[in-house]
């Protein structure tokens, strides 16, 4: 029994590893489909309780004014993409579109696990905003050094655009 103990441990470890990966791969389609689904019609997703580093992100609405209400008369529409989780935090992006052009992008919800992640996101988000405005789409290069923030940002932008039935 004692001699075979390592084998039992190894078999268990392989099974545990494979089991978690299997569960994970079955669960993953959800987040990637999230952008396309866009079921959440609430203007801003609720921010889960945070231990630190919550608050509106820089970039976008400089005076902190609320973004324009969806469906304002002059063909200007806003929608908020789904809350995107990435390794160090989560964010949601609000996109304003006027006459089929993206005119503003804000981040109403940003939460990070720790101050360093916050710092990185704070540096990246203004750049990402400019990239989206320039590209007029969610197809952006992203900011190197903030890859996961960039990916979450782009995904959330696409989700918002889907809600607005654009592209």
């Amino acid at each position: 029994m004692m001699k075979r103990a390592p084998w039992y441990l190894v078999v268990g470890a392989v099974a545990g590893f494979a089991g978690v990966l299997a569960l994970h791969s079955r669960a993953t389609p959800a987040p990637s489909a999230l952008g396309a689904a866009g079921k959440n019609e609430q203007p801003s997703p609720p921010v889960p309780p945070a231990r630190s580093s919550t608050g509106p992100a820089p970039g976008g609405s400089p005076s902190g004014r609320p973004s324009q209400p969806a469906g304002a008369g002059d063909g200007t529409h806003s929608a908020t993409g789904a809350l995107e989780r990435y390794g160090y935090g989560e964010l949601a992006v609000r996109v304003t579109v006027s006459r089929n052009r993206i005119t503003d992008v804000t981040v109403p919800a940003l939460q990070t696990a720790d101050p360093t992640s916050r710092q990185i996101s704070d540096q990246a988000i203004p750049v990402l905003r400019l990239e989206v405005l320039a590209a007029d789409s969610a197809s952006i290069n992203g900011v190197s050094g903030a890859t996961f923030t960039s990916e979450a940002y782009a995904t959330s932008v696409q989700a918002a655009l889907d809600k607005l039935h654009l592209r």
Partner: peptide, 21 residues
């Protein structure tokens, strides 16, 4: 008991990988 102990180790390691892109 040995299998469960091993499975825990495997699962813990896998969790680290799934959290990473």
């Amino acid at each position: 008991a040995l299998l469960v102990a091993g499975a825990g180790l495997g699962a813990t390691t896998a969790l680290t990988f799934t959290a990473e892109t």
